[in-house]
Simulated scan of single mutants.
Amino acid sequence: MSVALANPLSPTSTRQPPLKVMVVDDSVVIRGMISRWIASEPDMVVAASLRTGLEAVNQLDRINPDVAVLDIEMPELDGISALPQLLAKKRNLIVIMASTLTRRNAEISFKALSLGASDYIPKPESTRAAHAADIFHHDLIQKIRTFGAKLRRTAQPQATPQLAPAPSPAIERMRGLAPRPAAVQAAPLPALARRAFGAQAPRVLLVGSSTGGPQALMSLVTELGPVIDRFPVLITQHMPPTFTTILAEHLARASRRPAHEAADGETVKAGQIYLAPGGRHMRVVKHGMDAQIALDDGPAVNFCKPAVDPLFMSAIEVWQGAIMSVILTGMGSDGMRGGKEIVAAGGSVIAQDEATSVVWGMPGSAANAGICAAVLPLNQIAPKLVRLFSGDRS
């Protein structure tokens, strides 16, 4: 989860109609604040500002929004009850759950993801806390814009072939549009460069993820038993405090192996999954013959805290080139810089492919940087890791 500000992502295209956003929250203060933020963006508009989930369900057909920002705790019909009804009426509706940082709301947010919500975002406990409100503002606009752009790309109808060659698919993707067919068959784009896997047998597995990460991580660890039993697994997921506590419990259940939020100073051991706690960077340091967890409360990295790059970079001092790293779905480019250094040290990077990523930001950055030994669908990553940690070097 982002914890520092950057300018919100620029609009993906001025040729598209603005994204229609429905704000659903029983707090008039929160509704007004979110509505003002959305109204100030050139590529989105407030389609409705509603007080309850029941109003949202009843008025969805009339409003026909692209995105819904849905509070969890509301009278008449709460967010988790309204969610399946909204998606039943409009299957491709982007729903971003908004909740305060309580254990109960964290559990509900995880349930919402399993029911079809696109993402979640923690609301500030007080709108009078300027820094917290700024973080909420930045993250919400970024999520609306990113998911809206993906929705537009998947839903855009095929355009009529044009007399002049259309812009290249790569340029169109940069603009946030689906590639348009050209009148003349274009030459195929070159495949992304791949590196050979590192020559050393890996002794640790590092994983970085963000948007869409909880679902991807749950799927991944379910099949990683043979790796976890023999090697340590360290995970950084962009996520706030409390949410990481719940995620660790879910990972333990999914993997049937010990998983917990890492503690400062604990020794890294095989058979364990260590998760970076929300709001703190997780690094590793050498302590005699062992590796040790080092947590810090330093500034955000890549606008995130915890961030993936600190974990990736610090691991090189401990394991040199015997590192296997995986970058899963997520916004931004966190992990790419650390992945470069891992590869330079002799380690390897695997990225999740675009088709199975909720957002192909982090893995796409790594893939396009040419540092990956493989770019794989999510369901192929765990089997590949099991083979690699068993001695397969290809």
Rank of each mutant, 00 (worst) to 15 (best):
M1T: 13
S2W: 00
S2N: 12
L5K: 01
L9A: 14
S10I: 05
R15M: 12
K20H: 08
V23I: 15
I30A: 14
W37D: 05
E41S: 10
E41Y: 01
P42A: 12
S49F: 04
T52H: 03
V57G: 10
I63H: 08
V67H: 02
D78Y: 10
I80G: 12
R91T: 14
I94F: 11
V95M: 10
I96C: 09
T100A: 09
L101R: 12
A106I: 07
E107R: 01
G116A: 05
A117F: 10
D119N: 05
I121V: 14
S126Q: 07
R128T: 14
D139M: 12
I141H: 01
T146F: 00
A149L: 05
K150G: 02
R152G: 07
R153F: 09
P161K: 06
L163M: 09
G176V: 02
P179N: 11
V184M: 12
A187T: 15
P188R: 13
A191L: 14
L192E: 13
R194C: 05
R194V: 06
P202E: 05
V204M: 03
V204F: 04
V207R: 03
G208W: 06
S209N: 06
S209K: 00
S210V: 10
A216F: 03
L217P: 09
S219P: 00
L224Q: 12
P226C: 08
R230D: 15
I235A: 07
P240N: 08
L247C: 11
R257P: 06
R257G: 09
P258L: 07
A259T: 04
H260P: 08
A262L: 02
A270T: 08
A270M: 06
I273P: 00
Y274W: 06
P277V: 06
G278D: 11
M282Y: 07
A291E: 04
I293T: 05
D297G: 02
D297P: 08
A300S: 13
V301Y: 00
D309W: 03
A315G: 02
I316Y: 07
M331H: 06
G332N: 01
V343N: 02
A344I: 07
A344Q: 15
D353F: 03
T356M: 08
V358F: 02
W360H: 15
G361D: 10
N368P: 01
I381N: 05
A382G: 09
R387L: 13
G391T: 14
G391P: 13
S394T: 13
